[in-house]
Amino acid sequence: MSTPLLSAKNLRAFYGPTQILYDLNFDMQKGGITTLLGANGAGKTTTLRALSGMVKTGGEIRFDGKLISSKDTADIVRLGVAHVPEGRGTFVRQTVEENLQLGGITQPAGQIASDIDLVFTYFPRLKERFRQQAGTLSGGEQQMLAIGRALMLRPKVMLLDEPSFGLAPLIVQEMFSILRRLNEKEKVSMFLVEQNASLALELADHAYLLETGRVVMSGPAKELSQDENIRRAYLGY
């Protein structure tokens, strides 16, 4: 097997004195979609924050062969890690256009316009809303804007934090099919955190199950979706 694109070794994370993650180990392959499942408070969001350098961590995180666990968020982002925070992290007082421009703020100015056009091919709805303030968009549109903004970084990997949260099922279906196309056509690897386990296991090729800050199960997504315990606890049938 080739070296993984993103890997964690004995990853620990803390909020002040409180330890949230306990010695996580995981790898994700280039071009793949890995999902991290778990209940509320299992540490999923914290794992993503640890990966993009926003919380105090111990252990090792490697991205593209480089050790990134002690780097600043801004530097990690520049390496091609695009974090889409939970709760539609858009700049609500700025327009869709400005949000997308901000997404490319670390990129050469010359490529911004064509990258915005690329975002529109995946999210045509955003084109109609180009001059509108992000705060006036619907929940689904805001989530799409957040993903579009992350795309402006030309990322190698996207860290997606509950993209389905609070959205209507139809919108979620649409978004997940867009994510799949992004993965296939733009070669964006994805690290997906989800509560909606059935959707996540459908999209992902590999899955980890997190319980109270520890990985309790891992394997190919297909295998996990067959697992009796997972089905009962997270898929509900």
């Binding site: 993009s52 926003m54 600043d72 968020t73 801004a74 982002v77 520049r78 695009a82 974090h83 889409v84 925070p85 992290g89 858009t90 700049f91 609500v92 007082r93 700025q94 400005e98 421009q101 901000l102 997404g103 703020i105 670390t106 957040a146 903004r149 992350a150 970084l153």
Partner: peptide
């Protein structure tokens, strides 16, 4: 734009690579 981004949403500003 980076200044305003920080004003509006610090976490989102961070993850677009702005050095806060």
């Amino acid at each position: 734009r980076a200044m305003k981004a920080i004003r509006d949403n610090q976490i989102a500003a961070k993850v677009t690579g702005i050095d806060l």
